[in-house]
Design a protein around this nucleic acid. Structure first.
Length: 454
RNA sequence: GCCCCCUUCGUCUAGCCCGGUCAGGACACCUCGUUUUCACUGAGGUAACUGGGGUUCGAAUCCCCAAGGGGGCGCCA
């Protein structure tokens, strides 16, 4: 059996859309699952709307999401060039091939593909003008996701513009032929176009590849598919917000496909192993940022401490939470109690800033709620202070100090928690309290409590 | 207007191919818990087979129709 060759063919005319990313991802997964090749091909035939910056956005995002390509820009390959703008001569030769066969003809300066069938002129309600319709035989597609789909193309269509540039449908098919693509995995918005592509394959006398049309990603609410302007639609947004790329990728897999082993958050190697085109869903899915956020938080718990520190350090430095002098050991110590609680790297600076400055923010809500449990916070802290001054400075020792204070003053240990938390961190929530105190150290803990009392 | 695709909790979905489980899980939401706070974690809860016909002893599962949703119909990709 011949090797699987799939391609992702973005047009660098905008930002990297989440739907495009998911299409790229499914192609990449299929290539990795089958041990085939994943090809990146840049469809830049529309000169008006292309730019090098847009290309960089796509390549950077692809790399960020961990989708490496076997052939394409920057890596080369035996089927190049991989920019359609550099394949003009090929397209012209292929056009001539169709023209010579009588399958294409020139009209109004453009070249059209000639369909086979009886012709008639009718008024088209959509185009609001008279057009020539062709009673062509339906093209039959056995889609790997949709099953059998039959659709007849009913008009000759332009394959080369009057300005001499080929159109999408033509280059798409020519390149798929030349690059020996075996499987075309793309969004369902192309399903209706497929009859055009099948007509082209037929005109060339080439057997078409397998097709798999995957469902679209719809807006969270409101009608229609995700558009560039929708919140959460652009991959770069997640990069900027320090989402974990593995989490974004994992969530994207969940829109249109379900892992077979019952897990939703799982390593990419396991996803690759389980991924099958036949298991891809047929219905569109609505984007849900909250679920994605959940996947992100779950993924966060699974990464090794050293890796977490490597991710966190530059972000903390950038936000002036720490400076370069803070040691890895110290950072890892703090991160160890933070990692199990924080829900996103994005929140790290505010979540753990108090470990590194005496000038930490004080949450007004938390302060207002201090008296709810345990009464007067200052009184509780005065009762607690002697125990903290005397105890062994370990989790167990600090816990014992809270218990001792509780016994002495006939209270519950929890009565001391909110005041101690607020005095040392300015927050009402956060990492485990005993961990906070232990990591802060006795000196700073006592100093902050005394500062609160004054 | 024409063509194509889709239709299970608010959302993502399992189950459907090979009819017969209180229709299962996750997010979100609500409740309660943890002799320790919390954005953690644990236990519960609310919540769905679009509608109508048909086939059948029996249909979420098979067939038909309708409705709803999505997509396409460009010298954009």
């Amino acid at each position: 059996m011949s090797q699987v060759r799939v391609r992702f063919a973005p047009s660098p005319t905008g930002f990297f859309h989440i739907g495009s990313a998911r299409t790229a991802l499914f192609n990449w997964l299929y290539a990795r699952h089958t041990g085939g090749k994943f090809i990146l091909r840049i469809e830049d035939t529309d000169k008006e709307r292309n730019s090098p910056e847009f290309l960089k956005v796509i390549l950077d995002s692809m790399r960020w999401l961990g989708m490496d390509w076997d052939e394409g820009p920057e890596v080369g390959g035996n089927f190049g060039p991989y920019f359609q703008s550099e394949r003009t001569e090929l397209y012209k030769a292929k056009l001539k091939e169709l023209a010579d066969k009588g399958k294409a003809y020139e009209k109004d300066g453009a070249w059209w593909l000639r369909l086979e069938g009886a012709r008639s002129v009718v008024f088209d309600e959509h185009l609001k003008k008279e057009i020539e319709k062709v009673d062509a035989a339906p093209m039959v597609l056995n889609d790997l996701v949709r099953g059998r789909v039959e659709r007849a193309e009913d008009r000759d269509f332009v394959i080369f513009r009057s300005n001499g540039e080929p159109v999408f449908h033509f280059v798409n098919v020519v390149d798929d032929i030349e690059m020996q693509i075996t499987h075309v995995i793309r969004g369902e918005d192309h399903l209706s176009n497929t009859s055009k592509h099948l007509e082209l394959f037929k005109a060339f006398g080439v057997k078409p590849p397998e097709y798999a049309h995957i469902p679209l990603i719809l807006k969270t609410d409101g009608p229609g598919k995700m558009s560039k302007r929708d919140r959460g639609a652009l991959i770069e947004e997640y990069q900027q917000r320090h989402y974990l790329p593995a989490a974004v990728r994992n969530y994207l897999c969940l829109l249109g496909w379900t892992p077979t082993d019952g897990r939703e958050v799982l390593p990419i190697d396991d996803i690759i192993q389980q991924f099958e085109l036949s298991a891809v869903h047929q219905s569109n899915a609505r984007f849900d940022e909250r679920k994605m956020s959940h996947v992100n938080a779950q993924t966060l718990r699974t990464i090794p401490a050293a890796e977490f520190a490597a991710i966190a350090r530059p972000i903390l430095i950038q936000n002036k939470v720490i400076d370069e002098k803070v040691s890895d050991a110290r950072l890892t110590e703090v991160l160890a109690i933070v990692q199990e609680k924080v829900i996103s790297v994005e929140h790290l600076p505010e979540f753990m800033g108090f470990f590194f400055t005496e000038n930490f923010k004080k949450d007004e809500n938390a302060q207002a709620n201090l008296t709810k449990k345990g009464g007067d916070p200052a009184a509780r802290l005065r009762e607690l202070l002697p125990s903290l001054e005397a105890c062994e400075w370990t989790d167990a020792g600090i816990e014992a100090a809270f218990n001792a204070a509780a016994t002495t003053h006939q209270r519950k240990p929890t009565d001391f928690f909110a005041p101690a938390r607020f005095a040392t961190s300015g927050q009402g929530g956060g990492p485990h309290l005993l961990g906070i105190l232990r990591v802060l150290g006795r000196d700073i803990t006592l100093r902050r409590i005394k500062a609160f009392l004054n």
